[in-house]
Design a protein around this nucleic acid. Sequence first.
DNA 1: GTCTCGCATGGGA
DNA 2: ATCCCATGCGAGA
Length: 656
Amino acid sequence: MGIKVCMNSSCGATTTHEWKRGWPLGSGGYADLCFNCGSAFENMAYCDTFHLNESGWRECSMCSKRLHCGCIASKSLLELLDYGGVGCTGCTKTSQVHSKQNNGMPNGFGSSKINTASDVEITAVENRVLGNRVDEGKLDQLCALIEADESNLLSQRDGFDTNASLEQFRQEENMHSIVNVGTDFLNVTRSSIGSTKFAKPDIISTMLDMRDKHGSPSEPSLRMALGVPAGITSFVPPSGAVVERLEQGKSPSAFQQGQRSRPILPKPSKLGMSTALETNKVVPELRIARPPAEGRGKNQLLPRYWPRITDQELQQLSGDLNSNIVPLFEKVLSASDAGRIGRLVLPKACAEAYFPPISQSEGVPLRIQDVKGREWTFQFRFWPNNNSRMYVLEGVTPCIQSMQLRAGDTITFSRIDPGGKLVVGYRKATNNSLDTQDPQTSALPNGASPVDNSISADGDIGWNKSESHEGRINGDSLQQPVATSEKKRTRNIGHKSKRLLIHSEDALELRLTWEEAQDLLRPPPSVKPSIVTIEDHEFEEYDEPPVFGKRTIFTTQPSGGQEQWAQCDDCLKWRKLPIAVLLPPKWKCSDNVWDPTRCTCSVLEEMSSKDLDNLLRATKDFKKQRLLESHKPIQEYEPSGLDALASAAILGENVT
DNA sequence: GTCTCGCATGGGA
DNA sequence: ATCCCATGCGAGA
């Protein structure tokens, strides 16, 4: 071992009077830290001290403590929550205890039967969220996440087929087979691989140790895609990994937490929360995008090509081949790739990093062999394209057809150890949004309607996936249709028309955005609503369209007077506003014309941090209470009345 | 007319 | 602005 260097990149000290042990390294052992850095780490203040200016800070969904996500130094201090967002270990442990006590089902997903459509709504929600009894731990998470629960619409909830979604969870949707790629350039890739922790055999071995006990060799289970033991409601991904959708997710910002807005548009009863739950329930199924093994090229591979093989799949592959598998990259097959032309466009960076170097456009043949002994030959070549190259694998049609792959499925490239062979595998999409867009190919073998959307186990929101099980597994019914309809497909799904499509995932994204937007809607100023009653719910009806406004919190003083609080976008301090004020989406202290003494960010908050915490917590508690009472009909559109109830209880006691 | 090959195009990252 | 890449498309077989 050479000279010790403090592994705090901003320190780098080589001498210290006492070396301290830091975070566990992916490669084994622990980080070496000098005394100062190690002390900060011991005191759980490492990221607070050294990473303040780095990105990745979020707040615990329960206690709002700041957490540095995606940083190995803080890895042990946080956990990703089942319903999105993050929690500090203290809070998540508490919630896990509750979960285990109150709910035998991991993740709170019950398995009770759903008999009728009407049962679906309630039973599914109860099973997933509340369990048979109230699960406060879950509720803590939920309350932190479902900030806009009032803004969900019944019609939105109806967009999900709950029954199908539940069923979806029970199915093993992904198949993963493997094809060996015979290569004569292994030394190149092998010699260049290994400098990243994910490529190291010991890490692979570690992953292998995490065998999924529930998965059979022939049916790799992806249900708990990250190898999370049953009963554990949260997980921590391998360090350095990128959790898909974590950042894309709609987990609430610090600002969102504890805030409510006054609803305007008709909103559903408590059942409406199922929308948020539906969207959040994909979390336990996340695939981890692993930074691939370092290739020859210097180009950074785009994360979209990072292998997202799950630990279980990795274990499965490794077990099948009695080898370690090092994922390199993967690609979702386009219509062109899967078309009968038989050309698979390779990501340039990937081709240059992991495939043999070629100088001639004709390229080189690559022999391929799969675990069943079938051998394929691909021509790895490139086309001049502008001043660059476009790499393709030619002659992939037989292989793709034999694997029954279609556009939307994923082809993966890995390396197999020992031996260093390159490996091609695949992962079938459980849904095929391309197909659903194409009437020619959307006729399902079982006649199921493609509009029956559901959530696949790999976390994708998609459409009816029955085809992937019945249409594809049946080779007889597949081969012919693929061969005969391929041209139609490639013709019909032009990339121009494809751009017009809203993929199901995009639709979800859009809907979430819309829900968020709803929470920002405010009544049009200077317009008085007329009250209409529909099915015992009172609605405010406005002649003018709503306007966007900033989220605020409404409180009620012990005296009965109402107040409104808003947070400065710059300094994040909360300022008191008159109750009737409507703020624009962006608002700063300098805009606080109602309180000249607090119109700059430098002025302290009027509320103590303790009171503020209480207020925010009260809002969350109130939301939790609302969830508990979700079976009770609630008048939805009594502006701010509920907020006042929520905050008044706390403010009445703690804030004077 | 159909298929294959190779390059061109252009939207999007 | 540059590059990537999905797909179009024309020439030739």
